[in-house]
Design a protein around this nucleic acid. Structure first.
Length: 276
DNA sequence: CGCATTTGACCGGCGC
DNA sequence: GCGCCGGTCAAATGCG
């Protein structure tokens, strides 16, 4: 599914990086690389990046992600993790996708044997250039934790969707390499409509859907970037170009949802009837 | 008063 | 086994 979903989508930027594609050779390899985690510290970054690069070097002559016409200004960080692969060597990374809110509750400890892997949440990480940490994505979030990020002066915040029974979470942290960049990781899928009180026009990243002219105010700029381009954050951040989602083939705009949905692959956005 | 945020404690996983 | 670390809980606090 993933290679199908992610291949041949265009970089939303106006830069010369026109296309980013995911190799069909082993789409899961990159998908399981937690890009966000890799940014938390030089050490962590090195490790995770190493893993990611290892994937790209080992599986084929073509990296899991390849960008055509990449420039220093090219693309952004954009990564996702999906669940149902059974590659054993990625087992450890799967663990973190398990729902910790239930299995890890105090007093609700279950033996590993009995702790079945209920579901593994999908993840979607991206970077934005923003002055504010918490991006307006149309949903209401409650902060439930904050942790210092190792080797980074910026803490990581943990948010949970306030909608009842919605288990979507997101993590927000600032890149230590480029403090102007905010790394947001969504985990899970919303299965409920957007809160009606939200003003769409104010929300991120609806501007991306407008090819022209640029919106009067840009609160955030969205970047997606390949792991190999991580050193180019600053170059990308310095680029004052708009990102457009119009060429994002895997992205589709969902009426009345928009925002995050506009940029998140459809796989993350199953609009099933909301279970009450 | 109700809801959101803060923050220290706690827990499990993982590496050594 | 131990320590580190990421993630979560929950009481305290803040705010409208």
């Amino acid at each position: 599914m993933w290679d199908h979903e992610f291949r041949n989508f265009h970089c939303p930027t106006d830069h010369t990086c026109s296309r980013v594609s995911l190799s069909a050779a082993d789409p899961c390899s990159y998908m399981r690389f937690n890009f966000t985690d890799s940014l938390q510290s030089p050490i962590g970054y090195g490790r995770s990046l190493e893993k990611a690069l290892a994937f790209s070097h080992s599986s084929s002559s073509q990296p899991p992600f390849s960008s055509v016409g990449t420039t220093p200004n090219s693309c952004i960080s954009y990564s996702s993790i999906q669940d149902d692969s059974d590659k054993s060597n990625k087992e450890s990374q799967l663990k973190e996708l398990e729902d910790g809110s239930e299995s890890c509750k105090k007093g609700n400890k279950l033996p590993n044997k009995k702790r079945e892997k209920k579901h593994k949440e999908t993840r979607f990480a991206f970077m934005t250039k923003s002055e504010v940490d918490l991006l307006e994505d149309g949903y209401r979030w409650r902060k439930y934790g904050q942790k210092a990020v190792k080797n980074s002066p910026y803490p990581r915040s943990y948010y949970r969707c306030t909608t009842q029974k919605c288990r979507v979470k997101k993590r927000v942290e600032r890149s230590f390499q480029d403090p102007s960049m905010v790394i947001t990781t969504y985990e899970g899928q919303h299965k409920h409509p957007l809160p009606t009180t939200v003003k769409r026009s104010m929300l991120f990243p609806s501007f991306m859907l407008r090819p022209s002219p640029p919106p009067p105010r840009r609160r955030h700029e969205l970047f997606t970037q390949m792991p190999g381009d991580m050193n180019n954050y600053q170059a990308a951040a310095g680029a004052d170009s708009l990102m457009f989602a119009e060429n994002f083939s895997p992205f589709r705009q969902v009426p009345d949802n928009g925002l995050l949905q506009d940029m998140v692959p459809s796989a993350f956005l199953k609009h099933e009837p909301y279970e009450q």
